[in-house]
Design a binder for these strands. Sequence first.
DNA 1: GGCGCAATGCTCAATTTGAGCATAAGTGAG
DNA 2: CTCACTTATGCTCAAATTGAGCATTGCGCC
Lengths: 340, 340
Amino acid sequence: MSSLTTAKDPPDHALGTGTSDALSHPSAVGLVAVIVAATDGEPRALTVQVPGQAPGRQDGLPFGPLVPEHPTLERGLRAWVERQTHQRLGYVEQLYTFGDRDRQGDEAAGLHSLSVAYLALVREMRPAGLAEASWRNWYRYLPWEDWRAGRPESLGAIEPRLMAWAGEVADPKLRRRREDRLGLTFGLCGGAWNEERVLERYELLFEAGLIPEAQGQAGKGACAEAAVTGHPMAFDHRRVLATAIGRLRGKIKYRPVVFELMPPTFTLFQLQRTVEALSGAELHKQNFRRLVAQQGLVEETDDLTSGTAGRPARLVRFRREVLLERPAPGFRLTPARRPG
Amino acid sequence: MSSLTTAKDPPDHALGTGTSDALSHPSAVGLVAVIVAATDGEPRALTVQVPGQAPGRQDGLPFGPLVPEHPTLERGLRAWVERQTHQRLGYVEQLYTFGDRDRQGDEAAGLHSLSVAYLALVREMRPAGLAEASWRNWYRYLPWEDWRAGRPESLGAIEPRLMAWAGEVADPKLRRRREDRLGLTFGLCGGAWNEERVLERYELLFEAGLIPEAQGQAGKGACAEAAVTGHPMAFDHRRVLATAIGRLRGKIKYRPVVFELMPPTFTLFQLQRTVEALSGAELHKQNFRRLVAQQGLVEETDDLTSGTAGRPARLVRFRREVLLERPAPGFRLTPARRPG
DNA sequence: GGCGCAATGCTCAATTTGAGCATAAGTGAG
DNA sequence: CTCACTTATGCTCAAATTGAGCATTGCGCC
């Protein structure tokens, strides 16, 4: 059946990706959304409450079934989220389609289940419509990713456990392999930290057994533990969140997507704070503004901020024209060096 | 039903993306693969023959149903392709999940159908296993994308039609919008060509009615037409191919994926030819080698080429270590300027 | 009026690009 | 055997981009 070939019957429509053959294996498909906002210089994701394994409830990402009435996946998602959260989705991008990793239930029944994950950026942080939904700082779930105030404490606690994980194998070749991966993802053993490898880090932690979801011990961790290995999420939603963050961190470097998160006018410093929030790194202020200026990403308004300490800042707005002009505008992140 | 919320029933498993709710709307899911090789400095994709609308047959990408026995989407794809083509897949990456755009058939039946597309890179060009399958230069389907020998002729023929398409709307605002898009994607009206916008170009051509698949007139175009708007493909496989090319063109700039297409040892010029084949642009030779050398992407072997015209070249091999060292190694493409 | 605090301007050296020129080392023709 | 031609490889140089830091400007507030 799994034939790499011609479809057995000629298709009865002009378009479509040619899956008519697949009807014999229907699958359950769901949509998951990582809806991101950034206010007060903090990166946030919209979360909902999901019944957990233990009696309590757990954080999760908004998700729902794919219903047939929607013409397109993306438009389905848009309609669904906008209806439920009264949240205008500006930028929407497909993230990844997750298969059923480590799942047993449905497989036995001969059913696949997929979920198509989307990343959405919203400009304003509405009060989260539903009572069950709330905006949460995304570093709550992945605390080791926030380097804005220097090396995160979470990482300090994780590191010895990771080294132990690498050390626990006898085979020197395999151990070497694990150490390499630690260097690559976490910057240990002489490697460098790369802020885009969010998913790889999450998956490594998962593999090393440091992620509670891995053992179905969702209720176990105390608060102290959550500060180290992060707050758990339902299903594999933390993996989805990690995918989203990694993607977004990459994207802001070559596409002006940050502006989807900014209010109509803002100061350069607010913009910087937002970029820093997403990338989890501190940037060099003067160089950041030089970059933005050079790229012509913004235009000045006549207004200045007031009331804040220090000299008032000029308010600027995004120059929509850059979407047409530059082949691939965006930011290159220039990390600020901190002493020690 | 389409609730952005908590699942109604507590899930019976630790992982999975929480789609149990979606069972009520099963969907048909298929896999499509863009399997890429590059030999003799030409970029090729593996194609199969598919029954077309007209009596004849049409090129298409290898595709098949998603069968439940596979543990993971990617592994399912791997197994399936490797079994059928006896082709080792080296690098595999999920591309995109296509919904049923512009489809009517299944929708009425309350069924979605999706296809999950993958990009795979193979090192050697095996003789295409199946009789029905063959390796085709991918510019056969998207001739305007090949700028290696200067501005492609295809583009010259397309351009007036695109301008006409922009001109055909009365509303000046809408016309302006179309012109902007032409500038952005095709570099017309003063814009610059960006080799990564492959999908956007295809979709714009599709919208402008220049793609035969759009009207179900697959059999119509003569050879002359195919040289201009490209050879058609079954279903929306050309869209999938365009997605793959765009993604790959982006990726080679920051990840050393080209080496997945190279034989164990090769010359720097062969490497350059491969990069050029993928990106569709000619590169500056000396600077290319400087870049590769600086990045430490390859190491020299003791062998030289022989038999070719000109001075023998040193054979090099990929330095696997760079996968660990560099945070994000790859190529930055420095286009060669050609007179005129 | 002077202080502290941000915003903004400006400098400067170290790299990194972009573009060529020059030389080396083979093959094939006459 | 030598010349013409071809491709590989080395090297230079100016322009542009980065990375880092110092200096100045305006404001709210003692």
